[in-house]
Simulated scan of single mutants.
Amino acid sequence: MEKVLVFGGTRFFGNKLVERLINSGCDVTIATRGKTQDSFGGKVKRVQLDRSVDDSRWDEISSVQWDAVYDNICYNQNDAEIAVTRLGKNVVKFIFTSTLSVYGISETAQVEDDFSPMHYTLPEKDKELDYGEGKRAAEAYFFQKSGWDVSAVRFPIVLGLDDYTKRLHFHIEKVSKEQDIGFPNIEASMGFVSSDEAADALFFLKDQPGLGPINICSEGHLTLKQLMNHIENATNKTAKITSDVTEENHSPFGVSGSWYMDPSKAKAAGFHLRKLESWLFPLIDQLAGQYSKAH
């Protein structure tokens, strides 16, 4: 029975990943701060710790030999260093949840070589970094310092009914209420991935050799204008789009230019990608229906 450790497995695609690991017969331990209840009952072991604090709460997991470790909640080099120091040589395979944010805005699809963690100069310890730079530094630390078999899974924005950040919900509510939504560039193209697809990809990588950086996203992309057109159809309302962006109306998808990835490496590895429109448009319809019934 494979022993698997999951940092952050109680919400969203992390929760779905743990379900898949349990169903496959893995011996699963989840490590979180214990602030979010889970529904796994006695099917998992639990360790309560703060991922960003190196203290005695790590002792329970630091001496265990792990067949696979998933890290969904590492955001910077300091967090990465704690894991590498504490887990040492007791990791066979390490799967790190990274992000599209390691790339910049581009009118062409980003490929893995557009950011190389092996050629990244690590910043000074404890230096404050924004989200994208923090993930770059974390990737670099794992690849340069751990000696583990690492895959860094670069996801775009993850969407689903269970998205606790409610980014897609924001747009449906604003359109339904006929309120302004601010977009710096409504013609920008974006890619997305569903929470189920994200969980499937993480589970898939457990049984693969370390693939290094790997883009995981649905196949295809669309402009923000196309996205809003479908929300208009689903809500029977006209979206009030403005380029006068404020803190209140700023779309969570509001980017200055196109931002999407090429998932060819994942396809070549044998991972089945979903067509973006096959799940995104039905999700919008479902959320719009739920909002209409509630209001």
Results as ranks from 00 to 15, higher is better:
Glu107Arg: 11
Glu107His: 09
Glu107Tyr: 01
Thr108Gln: 14
Thr108Cys: 05
Ala109Pro: 12
Ala109Val: 09
Gln110Ala: 14
Val111Ala: 14
Glu112Thr: 11
Glu112Ser: 07
Glu112Asn: 04
Phe115Asp: 03
Phe115Ala: 03
Phe115Gly: 01
Ser116Tyr: 05
Met118Tyr: 00
His119Ser: 13
Tyr120Asn: 01
Thr121Gln: 15
Leu122Cys: 10
Leu122Ile: 07
Glu124Gly: 02
Glu124Pro: 00
Lys125Pro: 13
Lys125Arg: 10
Asp126Ala: 11
Lys127Met: 09
Glu128Ser: 03
Glu128Trp: 01
Glu128Met: 07
Leu129His: 04
Leu129Asn: 01
Leu129Gly: 00
Asp130Met: 04
Tyr131His: 04
Tyr131Met: 11
Gly132Phe: 02
Gly132Lys: 01
Glu133Ile: 05
Glu133Met: 10
Gly134Ile: 02
Gly134Tyr: 03
Lys135Pro: 07
Arg136Ile: 03
Glu139Ile: 02
Ala140Glu: 03
Tyr141Thr: 11
Phe142Arg: 02
Phe142Asp: 04
Phe142Cys: 04
Phe143Leu: 06
Gln144Pro: 05
Lys145Val: 12
Ser146Glu: 03
Ser146Ile: 08
Gly147Gln: 10
Gly147Pro: 02
Trp148Gly: 10
Trp148Ser: 14
Trp148Cys: 13
Val150Pro: 08
Val150Cys: 13
Ser151Leu: 13
Ser151Asn: 11
Ala152Thr: 07
Ala152Lys: 03
Ala152Cys: 10
Val153Trp: 07
Val153Gly: 09
Val153Gln: 07
Arg154Met: 10
Phe155Pro: 07
Pro156Trp: 07
Ile157Asp: 01
Val158Asn: 06
Val158Met: 13
Val158Asp: 06
Val158Cys: 12
Gly160His: 07
Gly160Glu: 11
Leu161Asn: 15
Asp162Thr: 12
Asp163Tyr: 09
Asp163Ser: 08
Tyr164Pro: 05
Thr165Asp: 13
Lys166Asn: 12
Lys166Val: 05
Lys166Thr: 04
Lys166His: 15
Arg167Pro: 10
Leu168Ala: 12
Leu168Arg: 06
Phe170Gln: 07
Phe170Met: 06
Phe170Gly: 06
Phe170His: 08
His171Leu: 15
His171Trp: 11
His171Pro: 06
Ile172Leu: 12
Val175Asn: 11
Ser176Asn: 08
Lys177Ala: 15
Lys177Ser: 14
Lys177Tyr: 08
Lys177Asn: 14
Lys177Pro: 06
Glu178Tyr: 03
Glu178Asn: 13
Gln179Lys: 15
Gln179Leu: 15
Gln179Asn: 10
Asp180Ile: 01
Asp180Glu: 15
Asp180His: 08
Asp180Phe: 06
Gly182Asp: 05
Pro184Gly: 09
Asn185Leu: 02
Asn185Ala: 07
Ile186Ser: 02
Glu187Leu: 12
Glu187Ile: 00
Ala188Asn: 08
Ala188Tyr: 04
Ser189Trp: 04
Ser189Pro: 00
Ser189Phe: 13
Met190Pro: 02
Met190Gly: 01
Gly191Ile: 04
Phe192Met: 08
Val193Trp: 03
Val193Asn: 11
Ser195Phe: 00
Glu197Asp: 15
Glu197Ile: 05
Ala198Thr: 07
Ala199Ser: 10
Asp200Val: 00
Asp200Thr: 05
Asp200Leu: 06
Asp200Phe: 00
Leu202Ala: 09
Leu202Asp: 04
Leu202Pro: 01
